[in-house]
Design a binder for these strands. Structure first.
Lengths: 222, 222
DNA sequence: CGGGCGATTGAATTACATCAAATTTCGTGG
DNA sequence: CCACGAAATTTGATGTAATTCAATCGCCCG
């Protein structure tokens, strides 16, 4: 079904070789293994024991929860440099899957847990609290905003996180975006088309979005 | 407009006198002032400097964010025993107001910040991570669930938090509930009426809800 | 170059919002 | 204790944004 070539590639990776993984990693001492996951592969499941912490080196990851009848809510996307997998209790409260082929830096949670002086706990606190801020933004979007505003703020956020380029390469499918924004795939698609008609964006293929008037998009976010 | 009698009541309160404030308080060393806020009063504003941490002794508090055009999202309700006001950065990312007349235990953030051995940081981490779990639940509700499911899970949550009584006393107005659930006041009201017609609840006045078939409500949450 | 999956587009439907009363609640003052 | 009146809530009628159902299109990979 999926290409499995990346799966199970394990190597000890000197930290210096990893450029994209962001500043926080070395402070979290996420030295250890890099591991690849092919598109669609589960990284960890909801309810699974949480004994690793991950940092995205390349590719993208989605975290999500599902209701018993199959409805899925994507909670967050993690991009190169982002850290994820930190959990309150012993178990993961969310699932995580590879959006496309990804390479992750993996560290045992226990290794990152304590270094005696509490500095590690403070870093974990900062990460948790960042997640909390992002989650609150998400609640605001889902509770208050229209479909147009949701899609605009999604593109805006992604542009910022990917470095404010004029051209975005969306790692995720329309279905992923829809499940993140609490919309249907059709509504997301229609909104993209609407934005294109209005001259705000240009779509090139499935994955590439050119932001023609980033300011106008930002204005739409209210 | 509002009764102001509770406002500005300040006293040094020995910890032993406070029964309702939950287990975590003494560990957070939130010894200090109790302070009353009348219904509707601001406790802190979005963007304000965050130099206190609060624990609810009696009454209820709502945290919220507002969009520039006035749309409001209630992010959380804090009930007796809950702690709130802990923030990532130096400033509050949300506002907080008294839902009804409340009495809070207030501590300087700096006093709770460090006790040398990192134990305090670990407690803050746990609190942040609890907030994160609740926020994720909220995202799931707003992104996936119908109006009926939202109201049912709201009542369910509140019942659990207030101690699984058969009769709930809602501290908040229909507008607060609507803004929490991403619905309108009319939809919340209609859904309450629907539940009453279906024999799931009975409404007594504005604030009292009797849960006739708690199991059926739980089932509705999916 | 062809097949298949993801994306787009169109038409019909619906859940919820909006607009507009009617009704109830509850604090206040007589 | 009861009546009044403002505010909150409920109910009704209508509108609409987003969903659902149903084709069709067009990337992209073999």
């Amino acid at each position: 079904m999926y290409a499995h070539s990346v799966q199970s590639a394990r190597t000890i990776t000197p930290l210096a070789e990893i450029k994209d993984a962001g500043q926080e990693i070395d402070r979290l001492r996420l030295v250890g293994l890099t591991r690849g996951f092919a598109r669609g592969r589960e990284i960890f499941g909801e309810g699974e024991h949480a004994d690793h912490v991950y940092s995205v080196i390349s590719g993208a990851v989605r975290s999500f929860r599902v209701l018993s009848d199959g409805r899925r809510q994507v909670l967050d996307f993690y991009l190169p440099g982002d850290i994820f997998g930190i959990e309150p209790g012993p178990d993961h409260g969310v699932g995580a899957e590879a959006v496309n082929d990804v390479i992750l830096l993996v560290a045992r949670r226990s290794l990152a847990a304590d270094d005696g002086d509490g500095a590690m706990t403070r870093r974990l606190l900062r990460l948790a609290v960042d997640d909390l801020r992002r989650s609150r933004d998400h609640v605001l979007t889902l509770g208050c905003r229209t479909a147009c505003e949701r899609v605009a703020s999604f593109l805006n956020d992604l542009a910022v996180r990917l470095g404010n380029r004029r051209s975005l390469d969306l790692p995720m499918s329309r279905q992923d975006i829809a499940d993140y924004l609490g919309l249907t795939i059709e509504t997301v698609s229609r909104t993209f088309s609407l934005f294109q008609t209005a001259g705000l964006i240009r779509l090139h293929g499935r994955r590439s979005v050119e932001l023609c008037r980033p300011g106008a998009l930002t204005d739409l976010c209210i």
